[in-house]
Simulated scan of single mutants.
Amino acid sequence: MTTAEMLIAAVRSGDPVHDADLPDCDLREVDLTGMCLRGGSLAGADLRGTRLDRARISGTSLAGADLREADLTDAELSAVDLSGARLAGALLGDTRFDGCRMLGTVLRGVRGLAASFVLTGCNLQLADLGDLALRGLRISECDLSEADLSGADLRTVVFDRCRLRGTVLRAARLDQADLRTSDLGEITPDTPRELRGAVVSPAQAAAICGALGLTVIG
């Protein structure tokens, strides 16, 4: 029995899997529903179309994994390395990402985002979240520096203590998006246009006015 077959057998028996080392393995369209995976590595794994609904994955490397069209409904990923992973077309209804490393992760094109979708404490530097419908979500303590949010629907999103330094917001919809507790990075004359409709703090507003050559006296 191969290591991949042992993983599948363990999942089907309902047993937690610890420290599985399966880099670059082929698990395309395999049913891993309810998998409990702790530690180990599936870096570079082919997980296209794989069923991972209700999976519980913690401390595992999925760096560079191909998760396109995978089903991650109700999955919980904690302290998982997803750097460079591709999730286009993945189903993320009610999925939770907590404390994950997601540098350069491609989320553009994911499906099924619900109000209970969670991004908290994640490093999303350089990630691609372009065109995502994130309306009404709360994104907490995430680093989105230089991430691509172009064309995203961010209306009423609460960015709670996030880093938005150099974040690409071209054509994003920010009506009533709450940025008051977040780090906006360098304020430039283009900032007012990029943040049109967003809610900012008095200090942020003063910085924006300063970038336009205005002096706020109050």
Rank of each mutant, 00 (worst) to 15 (best):
T60A: 02
L179V: 00
G49E: 10
A133P: 08
S182P: 02
I8T: 10
D178N: 12
L124F: 12
G59I: 01
L113C: 07
G213T: 04
I208A: 01
P189G: 07
D128P: 07
D26N: 15
L214G: 05
G89F: 05
T120V: 11
T50M: 08
T215K: 15
A115W: 09
G49F: 10
A70H: 03
G14M: 00
G130F: 03
L132E: 01
A211F: 03
R193Y: 04
Q204N: 09
G210R: 04
E76A: 14
G84C: 12
A177E: 02
D24F: 15
L7G: 01
V216A: 15
P16T: 01
Q204A: 02
C25H: 07
A43R: 12
L52M: 14
S201F: 00
L169Q: 12
G112L: 09
A205L: 14
R180F: 05
A133Q: 14
D183M: 04
I217H: 11
G89D: 07
E5S: 11
D143K: 06
G166N: 08
D98I: 15
L214C: 07
G84I: 06
G14N: 07
E141G: 10
A9S: 12
V199T: 13
E69I: 06
C100G: 02
D21W: 13
R173M: 12
L47R: 02
R173T: 00
F97A: 00
L77H: 06
R135W: 02
A114Q: 13
G213F: 07
G84E: 13
T191I: 02
R51D: 15
F117N: 05
A70I: 01
R180V: 01
P202V: 01
G59L: 00
S13Q: 13
L184D: 01
T181F: 01
A10K: 09
I57G: 00
